[in-house]
């Protein structure tokens, strides 16, 4: 029972109603934002912006320009790197899907920001008592049986909320029925071990120029967290080995010295 959201970017008209819905549901402060070169606004995610629509213009072979709108937000990884690295376990993947954050635990080390392969967690730099902020997948709404605020608001059906396996099936059904319209891959199906945020795009993420702004395609299918966990699984053995070696060598040298001393006495 793990929820996901399928974002069919071919349906998105760039109205940014989901941005607004997200801000108002989460009670996020208004900020003075700026446009990007491609008219996205805000330009960056921040502790006050959990969701933003990236605008992209692509020159088509027929000389026309096509617009693409891609919502960027937390991927809610199946096996999140952020949760794996947090020293106090402030981030956690719920079995229902969302990756949630506990305000009361976080020490503000910002390791999650370093580790998240999608660069999602943001820090409240302006506060003297700062916390980490990111999309919550509206976990508290989900607990009440509601869909996320952005999903409810979307006027075009770009955002589809449901069970992850069903959404994947639906995604491939769409690709199969209109192969010309879709790039034949679902971003998030396998990336970094799979995520609860799934994307359908018209062209590849490389062509959209998104691989450098969070939609990495070089992550492979393993969750990043396993690198840290593999290291941690060796730690106890290294500890025992180093400890044992030290004690062993110490007594070896001590014994040798004793033998020498005895020999000297006898000789």
């Amino acid at each position: 029972m793990s929820k996901a959201v399928l974002i069919d970017t071919t349906k998105c008209i760039g109205c940014r109603a989901c941005q607004v819905a997200c801000k108002s549901w989460n009670d996020l402060k208004g900020e003075r934002t700026v446009f990007s070169e491609t008219w996205s606004n805000p330009r960056f995610l921040s502790s006050n912006e959990y969701n933003r629509i990236i605008f992209r213009e692509i020159d088509r072979p027929d000389g026309q320009v096509s617009w693409h709108f891609i919502s960027r937000r937390c991927m809610h990884c199946n096996d999140p790197a952020c949760a794996s690295v947090c020293p106090v376990g402030a981030l956690e993947k719920m079995k229902e899907g969302p990756v949630v954050y506990d305000d009361g635990k976080c020490i503000g080390c910002r390791y999650c920001m370093m580790a998240c392969p999608f660069q999602i967690p943001k820090f409240e730099w302006g506060s003297a008592v700062p916390l980490i902020r990111k999309c919550t997948f509206c976990a508290e709404r989900q607990a009440l049986g509601l869909a996320p605020s952005c999903v409810t608001t979307c006027p075009t059906g770009t955002l589809l909320f449901g069970e992850r396996p069903q959404l994947l099936k639906e995604a491939y059904r769409r690709i199969g029925s209109e192969p010309k319209k879709y790039y034949p891959q679902v971003y998030g199906e396998k990336t970094a071990g799979g995520t609860s945020t799934l994307y359908l795009t018209a062209v590849s993420l490389e062509d959209l120029g998104l691989t450098r702004v969070g939609f990495r395609t070089d992550l492979g299918d393993v969750p990043q967290g396993i690198y840290g966990r593999a290291w941690m699984s060796k730690v106890p053995f290294v500890a025992v080995a180093v400890g044992g070696l030290c004690v062993g060598l110490h007594y070896l040298h001590k014994r040798r010295a004793e033998i020498k001393a005895e020999e000297r006495k006898e000789g």
Partner: peptide, 11 residues
């Protein structure tokens, strides 16, 4: 008191 034995930083 709050443990995450998966985390290198914890160690």
């Amino acid at each position: 008191v709050m443990w995450n034995p998966h985390s290198v930083l914890f160690e």
